[in-house]
Write a protein that binds this DNA or RNA. Sequence first.
RNA 1: CGGGGUUUGGCGCAGUUGGUAGCGCGCUACGUUCGGGACGUAGAGGUCGCAAGUUCGAAUCUUGUAACCCCGACCA
Length: 490
Amino acid sequence: MAKELTSRAENYSQWYNDLVIKADLAESSAVRGCMVIKPYGYAIWERMHDELDRMFKETGHVNAYFPLFIPKSFLSKEADHVEGFAKECAVVTHYRLKQNPNGPGVVVDPAAKLEEELIVRPTSETIIWSTYKNWIHSYRDLPILCNQWANVVRWEMRTRLFLRTAEFLWQEGHTAHATEAEAMAEAQKMLHVYADFAENFLGIPVIQGVKSANERFAGAVETFCIEALMQDGKALQAGTSHFLGQNFAKAFDVTFVNKENKQELVWATSWGVSTRLMGALIMSHSDDNGLVLPPNLAPYQVVIVPIYKNDEQFQAVDARIRPLVDQLKAAGLRVKYDNDDTKKPGWKFAEYELKGVPVRLALGAMDLEKGTIEVARRDTMTKESVPFDGVVGYVAGLMDTIQKNIFQKALDYRQSVTREVNSYEEFKVEIEKGGFLLCHWDGTPETEEKIKEETKATIRCIPFDGDKTPGKCMVTGKPSKQRVVFARAY
RNA sequence: CGGGGUUUGGCGCAGUUGGUAGCGCGCUACGUUCGGGACGUAGAGGUCGCAAGUUCGAAUCUUGUAACCCCGACCA
């Protein structure tokens, strides 16, 4: 791992790529823009999956699954939605191959052309709402609170491991409601679930807010988002929750009979987070020694490395460690005891640092004599020798300490690069330094577009919290209701 | 889709004016090691991205083509 790269923004992408590869998380696949998520990377994604799934269920949601293929006609029903996704769709046109009559290999059988092309889902609103039409007749059928864990495909021009792959894994919640207020509350509730997850599990501080019209999801009435800041000063949209109004109900003719026996269009939301969160995690906390995983998320919270010179010593050390593993597990910790004889301690130390395991315990003959054990923290890279008795409680306590420290470090960094900017001249200078800029904006798409063209900065969100003092737009001088968050983004 | 770069063993790379491929890491065996990615000795492993062409002879020169990476535009 090249040192000193974290502080050098121009090399950040190289550093990130190295990190992903060396920490054994993922690699490019043979298919353009796609990635292979390797076992350790997938273990991290599974942790995200498990915690999010639990949170969704705790908020009353259930899982379902809808088809990968979407008839082309479905996608054309909601005008804004088509507009937003048409340019990046993979299309299935045939359903059969045959032996190449003119040589080796196979060719697409022209006789097997589909009457209507199928789109590989870039998102599932259309196929789901065409299904919901059959599920919803009365107010008694509402609300529908479904989530789907799936893969989606967006044929992006430029891809990047975890942050923007052609195929990615995600969850997409799609809910249907009888009233506007209920749907709006749902969209906001799920945004809060995401924020809670990002901050308390991933250890990534996020700003919650509303997207400007330019950045809104195609087909949504309102898009809420959580915005995170990476260590190189660029912003990353970490999750979105959309209030879809009645747009999809209109497009797919989904109505219900209300309590007053009147036909009404259904209100909708959708919300999702993806394997992009892996990228957010990596770019938020990692250092030049590798990944730094917050304990609440880490597949292994504790790794134990035995140190010995011969089999006799190993037996003694092993006998001491085995009960400890059981005790740590009983205390609710995810533990890996690495007694692999083919790797040496020094190798293991470096390896688990690269993998970001929060706490490493090492125990050798020296410790047996002294009744101690070595405890090393990944977040601070510090080591200490502690009494063996009581180490379970000590390590359990460390989890919380480390979790908080990782979050606080990210928060401190974000605070240090978040500042108010009042003139456009100042903005042009400050945006080059990265970070979040809090500025007044007149609320028009035109002004936002001008800023984007001239500085590559976008409005990340109009934050819920923070200063609500009105002011004047830094570009046009027109009135502004509150400061909004600008940044350059991934 | 524009601009730049790369493609040689599992990985990272070198290869001069064309002469028939090498280094480091990793891998295998044995020994010494084992508290921060150990060391020694001996091995295995490559139709040089692909396809044509020039030449007595091509990793090297020419043309075509593909993939990947980086920077833009697009986007979660």
